[in-house]
Design a protein around this nucleic acid. Sequence first.
DNA 1: ACCTGAACACCGTTCAAGT
DNA 2: ACCTGAACACCGTTCAAGT
Lengths: 196, 196
Amino acid sequence: MTRLSTQERKEQIAIAILEIIGNEGLENLSMPALAKRLDIVPSALYRHFSSKEEMISAGLDLLRERIMGIFDQQESDSDDALEPLRRFLDLHRQFFHITTVFPRIAFSLADNETFDLRRQKMQRFHDTVLERISATLEKGRRNGQLRKNLDTSAAALSFWGILVSSTLRWFITGGDFDVEAYKKEAWDMFVRAVSI
Amino acid sequence: MTRLSTQERKEQIAIAILEIIGNEGLENLSMPALAKRLDIVPSALYRHFSSKEEMISAGLDLLRERIMGIFDQQESDSDDALEPLRRFLDLHRQFFHITTVFPRIAFSLADNETFDLRRQKMQRFHDTVLERISATLEKGRRNGQLRKNLDTSAAALSFWGILVSSTLRWFITGGDFDVEAYKKEAWDMFVRAVSI
DNA sequence: ACCTGAACACCGTTCAAGT
DNA sequence: ACCTGAACACCGTTCAAGT
């Protein structure tokens, strides 16, 4: 055990939360497992967060920052409005194990007070992502690259769905699935669906 | 408590498992909660199944039967090869709360022996669904309705992704999302993507 | 100010005993 | 043959005590 400042511990905990959920799933996220990874005792976690939910919440904040950071780097001056989305899809492989946290938590939700915090955080996160994608599509719609009657909100969710579907299949096959090949096909279908 | 034959109890348990997971999520599926619903004591469940995993597995078998049953009813003589898929998508609202079990379990999976049974069952299930969808698309490809170069496997996963994306958004918004409107848009995009 | 260790209620599972 | 009730190891959380 090494004594750390609350701020350092909180960060460390958020990072570990994402790693555990990403690699081992929500069901395997236990306070003993988390504490062991940081070389402290389970009850020590409660010095820094008031509950497991709060720790998950901190993990989601970190995830949002990371994902939005990647979106931010994809801004481009290209005439092709779809370019940032295609690049984001390409980069996805680099942060695949972190993004899996998103659907894992989304599909853990239920109409239950226990999940209120979790759900609110997810919604703000998802809204931010979808708005960013919609804005990109809107730009293409205005410059005539995409269909005039395109529902950019629905299209944004469909785009996000490419990542979700590929992760779903990856999980189900236990990793025996060519994610990149699928994303390529799905992207071609997406472009065909939204273009003029 | 009412004494039931093992066969009746097993069925009852599988049904209750789907209801609990569908409505309250995997995290809220506890043996006490399950037993209470059947008006027996938790340990009585182990007379009929050897573990919680086995019970989930029985739930998945039931889910597969139900979903494949619905697919079976959509066979049609129509010239339009996409017709069965469109009808399946329409019917989805009727069994929405049951289908949510599928992504819930899929995104609970991890590279871990604990999940081996769960994963195998999910894979067989998913393979069956995707093959059925692929076969439908293949028919349309042969009769010239769909693109010659269409990757029907990828397209099948994308079609399934429409259901998954809409469920994801439904969960995240806490039900404040027009699933039917989204499915309509996503279906139009899908048709555009696969058609000639 | 951060961490440990004992304690408690809850969950998955086992097993002996009831009918 | 099916169910109950006591028991055990494990998890989330609290709290008093250590440094």
